[in-house]
């Protein structure tokens, strides 16, 4: 049975010039212990659809769906209090800018212990102990020292590890990672992706990875959803997506990868996509 199921999700934003549809009738699901990658360019609605699940969209957004269920529970019918029990405990999220996602005025130790106190009811020593364990689990060097550090004293990669530690603190069953490595260097990206994958295996979490980077998809995903301008273009397991992409947009994306360049010029999405769409 799938962990999260979404059918016909639509998100509209009220703007000064009328309503703008950011997500247009998207269906998706993620199974237990599965890694789903959602790929798309900026403006494809890939982040917005997950923010809708988390309930993190601003008031100007209208979310409608035929179905949105988490583990058999209907998320659309939930009260705010019921939803809060889920979000941040069973379903957690990490964001693109690790340094900006942490509060600069508190130590990272305080911030992780806050989550442990609030969500798990741990206090004092127990919270500190668990925080240390989590810092070790995500591979932060000298964890005792680092608990006392402020975010600005850590590097971007370490801040992302702290974010991951906070996200897995409550043993979530679904982790949503929104471009977790976009702001990081390739070598750090590799470390963070390896960490996410090993945690995913160890904890048996479902993982939704939002990204625009086909390289990241190739290295992590079980299954892939390709989104473009708010619509789902293609859905396939990772191997068939790269071997035999069905949608012209996916083909265009893959051929725009610099390492796939055959001649002097890189094919671009517009070369391809408009051509095929007209046909």
């Amino acid at each position: 049975m799938s962990l999260l199921t979404i059918r016909n999700l639509t998100v509209r934003f009220a703007t000064a010039t009328g309503s703008f549809t950011a997500v247009d009738g998207v269906d998706l699901f993620v199974d237990r212990a599965e890694v789903l990658a959602i790929v798309g360019e900026s403006g494809s609605g890939k982040s917005v659809s997950m923010l809708a699940v988390m309930g993190l969209l601003p008031d100007t957004a209208t979310v409608t769906a035929d179905e949105m269920t988490y583990d058999g529970q209907d998320m659309l019918a939930m009260t705010d209090a019921q939803r809060r029990k889920l979000i941040g405990r069973e379903i957690t999220m990490i964001f693109q800018e690790p340094v900006a996602s942490l509060n600069p005025s508190f130590t990272v130790g305080f911030q992780i212990e806050e989550v442990l106190r609030f969500n798990l009811g741990l206090s004092g020593k127990a919270a500190r102990q668990r925080a240390l364990e989590l810092f070790r689990a995500v591979g932060i060097p000298q964890p005792e020292e680092k608990l006392k550090s402020y975010p600005h004293q850590l590097s971007g990669g370490q801040c992302q590890r702290v974010m991951i530690a906070i996200a897995i603190a409550s043993n979530p069953r679904l982790l949503i990672a929104d471009e977790p490595t976009t702001a990081l260097d390739v070598t750090i990206q590799k470390q963070i992706l390896d960490l996410l994958m090993s945690l995913q295996e160890d904890y048996g979490m479902g993982l939704i990875l939002i990204t625009h980077d086909m390289g990241v998809v190739a290295e992590t995903a079980d299954r892939v959803v390709v989104q473009y301008k708010g619509r789902k273009m293609e859905e396939a397991d990772v191997l068939s997506l790269f071997e035999n992409p069905q949608s012209p947009y996916t083909r265009a994306l893959l051929s725009a990868l610099p390492e796939h360049a055959t001649g002097d010029r890189l094919p671009t999405v517009s070369d391809f996509f408009i051509e095929e769409a007209v046909r």
Partner: peptide, 9 residues
């Protein structure tokens, strides 16, 4: 973005 990157390159 990837496709725009290709155009600029």
């Amino acid at each position: 973005d990837l496709s725009v990157q290709a155009q600029v390159l």
